[in-house]
Amino acid sequence: MDNIILELEKTQIKEDASTFEVGDFVRVEYLIKEGKNERVQPFLGQVIRFAGHGVRKTFTVRRIVQGEGVERTFPLHSPRVVNVKVDRGPNRKPRRAKLFFLRGRTGKSAQL
């Protein structure tokens, strides 16, 4: 790709961004607007995929809310994503990069 574009993208990339991996249970701190105020809204769950690269990299977090699976995709380098804390790692290291097989599974079979 064009060098100038890579340089431009580099200025927007958070260097401390990739401290977590697929399978980790994370707490994503996301800035939301409530009226005029801004506050951090956490989203807890398991990282099931990374997609894209460079400034366009995103990750998807899956959790179960009231028995219903919920997935949210965040742009990794977005200024809205304030912090991603790793709660705990997976029980076993996942053998694949995308954990889509967790969808439709519950309880013990949804473990790695």
Binding site: I5, V55, S78
Partner: peptide, 17 residues
């Protein structure tokens, strides 16, 4: 070429350089 930039409020904007 093209890329994307983040605005301060987090909006992603597709841009041509």
């Amino acid at each position: 070429g093209m890329t994307q930039v983040f605005r301060e409020d987090g909006t992603v904007v597709p841009v041509t350089v």
